[in-house]
Design a protein around this nucleic acid. Sequence first.
DNA 1: AACACGGTTTCATTACGTGAAACCTATCGG
DNA 2: CCGATAGGTTTCACGTAATGAAACCGTGTT
Lengths: 247, 247
Amino acid sequence: MEEGKVTVRAVERALDILLCFTDANELTLTEIAVRVGLHKSTVYRLLASLEHKGFVIRDAESEKYKLGFRLWELSANLSQADDPAVVLLPEMERLRDMIGETISLYVRDGHERIRIQAVQSSQAIRRVAPVGVRLPLYVGASSKVLVAYADAEDRESLFSSPTWPVSIDQEAYERQLADIRASGFATSVEEREPGAAAVAAPILNRSGSMVAVLSVSGPANRLTVDKMKEHAAAIKDAAARMGKMVK
Amino acid sequence: MEEGKVTVRAVERALDILLCFTDANELTLTEIAVRVGLHKSTVYRLLASLEHKGFVIRDAESEKYKLGFRLWELSANLSQADDPAVVLLPEMERLRDMIGETISLYVRDGHERIRIQAVQSSQAIRRVAPVGVRLPLYVGASSKVLVAYADAEDRESLFSSPTWPVSIDQEAYERQLADIRASGFATSVEEREPGAAAVAAPILNRSGSMVAVLSVSGPANRLTVDKMKEHAAAIKDAAARMGKMVK
DNA sequence: AACACGGTTTCATTACGTGAAACCTATCGG
DNA sequence: CCGATAGGTTTCACGTAATGAAACCGTGTT
């Protein structure tokens, strides 16, 4: 396992436990142990620490663990200024008005992506994109960008994980990712949803790491090859500007 | 140092670091090191872990550390239904409208209490109670309730801790706590702040454990003995109702 | 009764987290 | 221009403290 940063194992494990609660809001100790792949007693001790500091609590009746009040305190202090979903919204609206299609913003979360922001096209036929949904990482333009711009070791662990479809021709897929990195955007036509097409580009901050992925999506029959090219240019341009707005 | 729970040192330290950001939203590594009382390199490693998991980030321009986007994800999943500060707010407003004084909600946090919610009296002369402040646990009506209803061993460790004022006559104090438990409320007149008085009662959930403490506070000259009695009745009533609303 | 399923405790082992100290790179002030 | 300061990073030897296995406890469930 390649590192690069000097981290503290116990802490990372504890944080992994916290992150379990992004897609489940009540878990038992053993469920958590399975999720993070650690021994019961290890999880027990880590949870005890998290509980002691108020980051998790045990629900009185269900006897299960859930997130604690400490996170309220912290999230109250989260400077909204750093949340891409907030900062980039105006810019996304500008882009939407310019090209007239639905604009989405995704971040990767483990083996999925989350749509953290979206502005809807105002056209009658349009892509409807609810905020907050989780989508698989192996289909769609945004997914491909998220994977293409992940760091190497991260990608490796993704591909070797049991959630990654074995049906994918890894050879061809890698070539596709290389193309995406070269061109700076990805496209998809009816990959995830029939009748839908999309163009996506990474938002890279000043230090060059990916903050999120921006996408234009709409009905496939409106997103012709020419239109896609136009959109790709527009979205790359917007993404570059956005990259300067976030850490 | 009395324990009682098997915790993981590194994790607790990391969480302490996170908690630094409740009262400051940008900190340098060394500032953090001072706050938590650890060596630079230790904090460095813990921060690296927190950063790696997205719980803190380094601001691009200020180069300081701040809370990361991961907390957004988590707080999105915080079941609002369990946060007393949210659930009980409407009820607190009702109470405020009824008796016309500032209503506060406190929880205990180690050797302090935190005001997790407050609704302000609309009178010209009033108690102004900002949410989020931390106050000592040895003065004020709310403090006394928080201590009185803590479990015995918890109280013991509190009293034997170095932060507990030695000046307190423990004998008399214990009697006072017993009275509070008997009557179900506590009062204070100019105990913590000159000119201010308060009445406080515990919010006990169905299983009988204390969730928070509710208090009425205002200028001492308005909170006469008679008024205090009225308020005590009102607040006990409200607290009882609230106790059924939370876990 | 036997079993499964959560949580808790104990214990031996050594990996891992730790603090000190050195180092690097800026920025500041005389 | 040089020394000082401050913030961050790396290295290293040491010994604690985190770990996994296994046993244990309580409570349902069959």
